[in-house]
Amino acid sequence: MIGKLLRADFLKIKRKGLWFLSFLGPFGVIALQMVNYGVRKDYLLNQSDDDWGYFLEYVHSFTPLALVLGIAILTSFMASIENETNAWKQLISLPVSKMSVYLSKFMVLGSLLFVSSLLLGVFSLGYGILLNLGDQIPYLELLKYSFYPYLAALPILALQLWIASVSQNQGIPITTGVLGVIFAYSAFILPDWMIWKWPSLMNEWDEPLINVMLGIGVGTLLYIVGMLDFTRRDVK
């Protein structure tokens, strides 16, 4: 059942610009480094012996922001497809369970963000090579910087999808989305328990893997709560 729903959902996002946004996010993050390194490459390369690591740190300074912003926009667009003409009622009166409808939406968003993360890795690698950062390409670090923030951001995705699918008023998910972006921007001063801090991979133990684990755990939990709430409610 979920396969059918996924195919339908991927058809529905056609011409909505979601694929383009998934490309634009990582492209924008790298484009900022193109400016940064374009302007002061020599200075930056002198700052550290580990040019790749230093470069990836710089890339990562913008990743959480792009990710949280991306999640807010993608979930809003995704929900708007069904909200616009109240197509939820048509979708849910088909022979499908509400749980699988919700799962399909989550999986489509998850896939788009996965593609974004993958592109972030590819673009980082490509621009790093172009910058001649050295032959010792740190593939593992590259993977971590591309996918750790994504996994750590799963709770935000689950939360935004929940809010966007049950709100009558689409101003609510937009507000929480904007707040999230502001939080992500202020990650430095946020306490460790705030989910919007997690994609920054910062915590008091300096161990990014904690954020990833928390992201997957709390993300799953918020997903289940959101799905149950969606199933319980009368359809708009």
Binding site: A8, L11, K14, K16, A87, L91, L94, P95
Partner: peptide, 19 residues
């Protein structure tokens, strides 16, 4: 209910895939 950015055919196709 319909998906305005899709054609009539695509609208039905989105439902057909599920049915």
């Amino acid at each position: 209910s319909y998906y305005p950015h899709l054609t009539a055919y695509e609208n039905l196709e989105a439902l057909r895939k599920i049915l």
